Simulated assay, not measured.
Amino acid sequence: MKARPKLIRPTPEEDAAITTAALSDPDNPPLTDEDWARMRPAREVMPPSFFEPVGSSPPRRFFMAEIEFDVADHFTREFGEDWQRRLNEALREVITRKQAAE
Score class of each variant (00 low, 15 high):
A37H: 04
A37F: 07
A37N: 08
A37D: 07
A37R: 06
A37S: 04
R38N: 07
R38G: 07
M39Q: 08
M39D: 08
M39I: 07
M39V: 10
R40A: 12
P41D: 05
P41Q: 04
A42T: 03
A42C: 11
R43N: 11
E44M: 05
E44F: 03
E44R: 13
V45D: 08
V45E: 08
V45K: 13
V45H: 09
V45Q: 02
M46K: 13
M46Y: 06
M46N: 08
P47G: 01
P48F: 00
S49D: 15
S49T: 15
E52Q: 08
E52S: 10
E52A: 14
E52D: 12
P53F: 10
G55V: 06
P58T: 11
P58A: 15
P58I: 02
P58S: 14
P59H: 11
R60C: 14
R61Y: 15
F62Q: 09
F62K: 15
F62E: 12
F63G: 03
F63T: 15
F63E: 12
M64P: 10
M64N: 14
A65C: 05
A65W: 06
A65Q: 04
E66P: 13
E66R: 15
E66H: 15
E66W: 14
I67G: 10
I67Y: 08
I67W: 05
I67T: 11
I67N: 09
I67M: 10
I67A: 13
I67C: 08
E68L: 08
E68G: 10
E68H: 11
F69R: 15
F69I: 15
D70Q: 13
V71F: 09
V71M: 10
A72R: 09
A72T: 04
A72M: 06
D73C: 11
D73I: 14
H74C: 10
H74Y: 09
F75Y: 10
F75I: 02
F75W: 01
F75A: 02
T76Q: 12
T76W: 01
T76M: 14
T76Y: 06
T76K: 05
R77E: 07
E78M: 15
F79I: 01
F79W: 03
G80P: 00
G80T: 00
G80F: 07
E81K: 12
D82V: 04
D82T: 07
D82L: 06
W83K: 02
Q84F: 01
Q84G: 02
Q84D: 00
R85M: 07
R85P: 00
R85V: 08
R86E: 02
R86N: 01
L87N: 00
N88K: 03
N88V: 00
E89Q: 05
A90M: 03
A90T: 03
A90Y: 07
A90H: 05
L91H: 01
R92Y: 06
E93F: 04
E93P: 00
V94H: 13
V94I: 11
V94K: 04
I95E: 07
I95S: 13
I95W: 11
T96Q: 15
T96W: 03
T96M: 10
R97T: 10
R97P: 05
K98S: 12
K98C: 09
Q99E: 14
Q99S: 15
Q99T: 06
